[in-house]
Amino acid sequence: MKILVTGSNGLVGSYVVKQLLEEGHQVFASSRTPDLSAFSEHPGYRFVQLDFTDPYMLDAVFEAIKPEVVVHSGAMSKPDDCEQNQSEAYTINTAGTLQLLLNAADYKSFFIFLSTDFIFNGKQGMHREDDPADPISYYGCTKLEAEEAVKTYAYEWAIVRTVFVYGKPLYGRDCFITMIAKKLRNHEAYAVTDDQERTPTYAPDLAKGIAAIIEKKATGVFHLCGKEICSPFQMAMETADFLGIRSHQLKPVHTADLPALAQRPLKSGLDISKAQQQLDYAPLSLREGVRRTLEGTAGV
């Protein structure tokens, strides 16, 4: 199957590309930045440098590929950056998705959109797919508007909401766990919030869930994340425990005490019951995810 993946140089996109290649698909990985991957020798892999906010580039790419499936994982995903640069956030997260939908419709592509727990206000937590959205940050607003556009798509579509993705970087910048590991090893002081309830997502689990959606042609909204509720500070302590570091300078703090432009939902966990039932989604435990993220890194 011919599959176009946006954001392929990011943590989520890179694992989606890896998973789909392993399952024998023809994968067209795309990113605004040059190819960073180690997949260039794989017979099913092609890289396309693409700015999906540029309609002319998109027209040319879609005409050349004629994708059967589009996995749209590209986004401006840092909430503070979105709050500070709202025009850019709207262009990338909302308008860019709209443009992709227009091109995908020409080829009746199955459209899979990566969304976020930040479309919820975080007052109750463990949200189900049909819970009402109420974003409290501009990032959440742009992703919700994109979701609403996807739901009007005339052909098959799926929306995948996920939470706080981590995993061993295939290339590019650290994830939260590897960043914390470096600070622990260097005995650096660092404040980590302890009052946000999340259901952190191991990136390979997320990629497997997306592959299952493609295989089953499952449509609608799905929550794909971890099954355990914990705070970022608890994730940091799980990292310290794995590394065997007892003495550190990590400090638990409340979200309100951290300098941030964008509000964060305090209870943003997602219920994965639907994905477990319909996709056979079975995420790893946080402890196992942390182990697989850190094994083989410096000092382990």
Rank of each mutant, 00 (worst) to 15 (best):
D81C: 02
D81Q: 10
N85E: 09
N85W: 07
N85I: 04
Q86F: 00
S87D: 12
E88K: 11
A89C: 10
A89T: 04
N93W: 05
T94S: 12
A95C: 03
A95L: 14
G96F: 07
T97P: 00
T97L: 10
L98H: 08
Q99V: 06
Q99L: 14
L101I: 14
L102S: 13
L102N: 13
L102E: 15
L102R: 13
A104Y: 04
A104N: 08
A105P: 08
D106E: 14
D106K: 12
D106Y: 05
Y107H: 15
Y107E: 06
K108S: 15
F111H: 08
I112G: 14
F113I: 14
L114C: 15
T116M: 06
T116A: 05
D117G: 10
D117L: 04
I119K: 01
N121M: 04
N121E: 13
G122T: 14
Q124L: 03
G125S: 09
M126Y: 13
M126R: 14
H127M: 14
R128G: 05
R128M: 10
R128C: 07
D130T: 13
D130I: 01
D131Y: 09
D131E: 09
P135Y: 06
P135C: 12
I136R: 04
S137V: 02
S137I: 04
Y139D: 00
Y139H: 08
G140V: 01
C141S: 13
C141I: 12
C141V: 10
T142Y: 00
L144W: 02
L144P: 05
A146L: 11
A146M: 05
E147K: 01
V150F: 01
V150K: 02
K151I: 02
K151V: 03
T152Y: 04
Y153R: 12
A154F: 07
A154S: 15
A154L: 14
Y155I: 08
W157Y: 15
W157H: 15
A158P: 14
